[in-house]
Design a protein around this nucleic acid. Structure first.
Length: 675
DNA sequence: GGCGAATCGTCAACC
DNA sequence: ACGATTCGCC
């Protein structure tokens, strides 16, 4: 490993890579080779004799972690690369908590609640807690609770106000459910490391070199976590923790999740005397695109000034295309991509369509499908949001933790097995009074005395069902995948799923998703010893679609939200829906976060390597009906000399760029090839 | 008391 | 256009 070469790095990049010890702040503008620097630095550390297992690299998304893992595998032997820990914050916390959460009074088989689960729980608590004249929007409460947790829990938790009471009860309830929410993963880990120096010391020894990507998106808790991991318990004053953080304040787009830009703007206060490296040379985009992005972002006040430059000159102007409505927007984009695949040396995977909301992908998908252009929709919780997936995960979760009321209640009458709403309500009430789980109440003599004979039969059948499979699952040497498969079989869930779908095709599709899930688990089981618990953890922390098998000929056009697109690049980008109310989003004006919306557009623009088109519609379908809209105020913040405004009708009347007959024929062939 | 069907209100981004 | 909620029937 001693022969490792730092090839093709510019001086700033090389300095970042070569700085091994002490705090390091890498301010990496968009497209400045950030990922390359991180992976090179890891490889360099290893080449300098640092054991790969001492290195921890934290990212925000699984996608980023995977990408880094892949890139690292090209620089190091694969078995060496595997020893480096690359993880998301949440996955890391999960690992830490699964080992020692019992020190905080939880059990090690705790469940994780996703957004939907927590909203449901909060809703229930509000109805139980609120007086008649009191009102509290569950989503508002959830946002407040989340915010408080991410700030380290400095919120009222008492019965003086409704929200205070809900706060306190929510957290208490989670604990009795033996469950944690996403925020708890961070909050409880920080608590654990704070209150148990022995645990902290173990992790201090485990990881000696930390790297954090997308540092501008860290919140208070994540900063605390990094500090706890990096600074030994009894560190002498003046000790210099080995923490390298990478980020770009201009790309901070997770304020709504508690991200605090001051973590990066005031890095020196948390880790004194860091080496600061600024990466400003952009290797991605044309100067036209960069110039537009720079001009736009200058409208933000609170930022570390940077001047991105590129050796790549000129480039086509940024097109701003106006459409009558969103239907035609989708049609135009699909048609133009189809045309460009034929007339330009471009493949489907060179194109990306970026949007503010997941819902915007539908019409694009529809039009691309019609033209038989391959595409992939990235992120969009669609897969894990589907009811059949949630049901499946709930079934699995019950088997592992029968105290998990939310999961038990989700499937207790799915498929309908005679345990209806009133019965459930009674059981829930009694469980609250007696302070035990809903599932435990089902066997309680007092509860059983209070219900009808028929109900008792239904309840018994359910108890028997869950108990028997729980036992099977925990038998030593059990084939867990087989148990899960039999469990789903026994419940008749798939048949019910089929029955409740409008069309047989839909039923088949949903059914196959469940079966696919079981198949993943089977494969997962062969590869690792994490069992059903580990598999479920992975699933809960993956809001992205499962990596699809690499298909021949690439993945096609990428459809992705602006948030999820951070860190990616594409030769040709369409950024759609540049309308006031959508981007910037209406709520951002109320919340005073228009700057963040501007950064979001900045992120979108800087994804483009060669060409960029921004589109906006005069009318957009909203709430069923068509509503008039206006062009986004950000459009006029772009430099006039670098953009051109077009109406879609103009473009459609332009002749297709002519190529020779033979050229046309060849590109036709290659088009068919690319498909 | 439980089940399926119409009606109502909602619509940001992610781990 | 969608899912959660309410309504009427068994």
């Amino acid at each position: 490993m001693s022969g490792f070469r730092l090839f093709d790095l510019n001086p700033a990049q090389e300095q970042a890579v070569r700085t091994i010890e002490g705090p390091l702040l890498i301010l990496a503008g968009a497209g400045t080779g950030k990922t390359r620097v991180i992976t090179m630095r890891v490889a360099y550390l290893v080449s300098q004799g640092i054991p790969p297992s001492d290195i921890l690299a934290v990212t925000f998304t699984n996608k980023a972690a995977n990408e880094m893992r892949e890139r690292l595998a090209t620089l190091l032997d694969s078995d060496v690369a595997k020893k480096v820990t690359m993880s998301t914050f949440h996955a890391l916390c999960m690992r830490i908590l699964r080992l020692d959460i019992d020190k905080l009074g939880y059990k090690k088989n705790f469940s994780i609640y996703d957004e939907g689960d927590t909203t449901g729980l909060i809703k229930k608590i509000i109805t139980r807690t609120a007086a008649r004249d009191e009102k509290l929007e569950p989503n508002v409460a959830k946002a407040l609770i989340s915010k408080a947790k991410n700030n380290g829990w400095n919120a009222p938790q008492d019965d003086k106000t409704l929200i205070g009471a809900v706060f306190a009860r929510y957290q208490a309830e989670l604990k009795t459910l033996n469950a944690v929410d996403f925020d708890d993963l961070l909050l409880l880990t920080v608590k654990l490391l704070n209150e148990h120096p022995d645990v902290r010391e173990r992790w201090n020894n485990r990881f000696r070199f930390l790297m954090v990507d997308e540092f501008q998106d860290t919140n208070r808790l994540q900063l605390d976590l990094v500090s706890l991991l990096a600074k030994p318990v009894n560190a002498p004053p003046g000790a210099r923790p080995n923490v390298a953080v990478v980020g770009d304040d201009d790309q901070s787009i997770y304020g709504w999740r508690g991200a605090d830009m001051s973590n990066i703007l005031e890095f020196e206060q948390h880790f004194p005397n860091p080496v600061v490296v600024t990466l400003e040379q952009n290797y991605r985009s044309t100067n036209t695109i960069l110039g537009s992005a720079n001009f736009l972002i200058k409208n933000n006040a609170r930022r570390r000034a940077k001047s991105l430059w590129s050796a790549r000159d000129g480039g086509a102007k940024v097109r701003i295309v106006q459409m009558p409505d969103d239907r035609q927007e989708a049609e135009f984009i699909a048609n133009e991509i189809a045309q460009r695949i034929v007339t330009e040396p471009a493949k489907a995977e060179d194109f990306a369509v970026l949007y503010r909301m997941n819902a915007q992908s539908r019409s694009i998908e529809h039009n691309l499908r019609e033209l038989h252009i391959p595409y992939r929709v990235v992120g969009g919780k669609s897969f894990f949001d589907a009811r059949e997936i949630k049901d499946f995960l709930a079934y699995a979760s019950c088997l592992l933790n029968t105290e998990d009321d939310v999961s038990v209640l989700r499937i207790i009458n799915t498929p309908a097995r005679g345990i209806g709403a009133t019965l459930i309500e009674r059981a829930t009430e009694m469980s609250a009074v007696k302070g035990c789980s809903v599932f435990a109440i089902l066997s309680d003599p007092e509860f059983r005395g209070s219900i009808s004979k028929r109900a008792t039969g239904a309840v018994d059948a359910f108890i028997e069902l869950l108990d028997s499979f729980e036992t099977k699952l925990h038998e030593p040497l059990a084939d867990q995948a087989a148990v899960v498969r039999a469990f789903i079989q026994e419940t008749g869930y798939l048949e019910d799923l089929h029955r409740t779908c409008k069309t047989p095709e839909e039923g088949l599709k949903r059914q196959s998703k469940v079966l696919e899930m079981i198949r993943w688990f089977e494969e997962n089981q062969k590869k690792s010893d994490k069992g059903l618990r580990g598999f479920l953890d992975d699933m809960m922390l993956r809001q992205e679609k499962q990596e699809e098998e690499k298909k021949e000929g690439g993945d096609g056009v990428t459809l992705i939200t602006l948030h999820a697109a951070k860190g990616l690049e594409f030769p040709h980008v369409y950024l759609i829906g540049l309308e006031e109310g959508l981007l910037p989003h209406d709520r951002s004006k109320v919340e005073g976060t228009v700057d963040e919306e501007r950064r979001l557009l900045y992120v979108g623009i800087t994804r483009a390597m060669r060409t960029l088109a921004l589109t906006w519609c005069k009318n957009r379908v909203k709430y069923g009906g068509t509503m008039p809209t206006f062009v986004s105020s950000f459009v006029k913040e772009l430099p006039a000399e670098l953009v051109e405004h077009r109406d879609v009708s103009q473009i459609l009347n332009e002749p297709v760029p002519e190529t020779s007959v033979k050229g046309r024929f060849d590109s036709m062939l290659s088009f068919l090839d690319k498909l």
